[in-house]
């Protein structure tokens, strides 16, 4: 690699790192109460509108859930408590995020498992292809090389 190219890569690396640092610094400070409420609402599905969350929906029940979330956040309940409360009121399927325990947790675990397994198989295939390519020199080949070496 010549010096010019090395310099260019260094420059690119600097810009990338600089941009990422800038991106982190620009990020808002930790969540305020209102932002916490917003994030919870984002993951609450409106029970009557097929997949819209309560922020997007204009249905009365969505408005009610929004108000309840604000209230519970004001009372200082944790996210988990609010989600559990909503699930008791409106059923488990009010939470857009499937549960992390019980049978429902499989939906989180399976993709990771399949991803790791598939990657492992691919790596295995590569190593097998690679080892298959190594050709062992025959007796004859070794003999030829030996005679050549002796000559020189």
């Amino acid at each position: 690699m010549n010096g010019y190219r090395r310099l260019s890569w260094l420059l690119i690396l600097l810009v990338v790192v600089g941009a990422l640092v800038g991106a982190v610094l620009a990020e808002d400070p930790p969540a305020t109460e209102a932002e916490r409420a917003y994030e919870i609402k984002e993951t609450m599905l409106c029970p009557v509108c097929d997949g819209q969350n309560v922020l997007e929906s204009n249905a009365p029940v969505a408005a009610a859930i929004r108000a309840q979330v604000d209230e519970l956040v004001d009372e200082g309940r944790t996210d988990e408590e609010i989600r559990a409360w909503m699930a008791r009121q409106y059923g488990d399927d009010v939470n857009a995020n499937p549960p992390r325990s019980g049978l429902g947790a499989l939906v989180w675990v399976l993709p990771v498992f399949v991803g790791v397994l598939a990657s492992a198989l691919l790596v295995l295939a590569f190593t097998r292809w690679r080892s298959g390519r190594e050709i062992k020199p025959s007796e004859e080949d070794v003999q030829i090389v030996r005679t050549l070496r002796e000559k020189s």
């Binding site: 984002e42 969350n53 488990d92 857009a96 995020n97 049978l103 939906v107 993709p111």
Partner: peptide, 24 residues
């Protein structure tokens, strides 16, 4: 595929109703 059919599978197995939504 998993996210789409998962609620159906869970409901068939133990009757639980759960949602797999956009955040997932």
């Amino acid at each position: 595929l998993l996210g789409t059919v998962f609620p159906l599978i869970v409901e068939a197995i133990n009757g639980d109703q759960l949602a797999v939504g956009r955040p997932y």
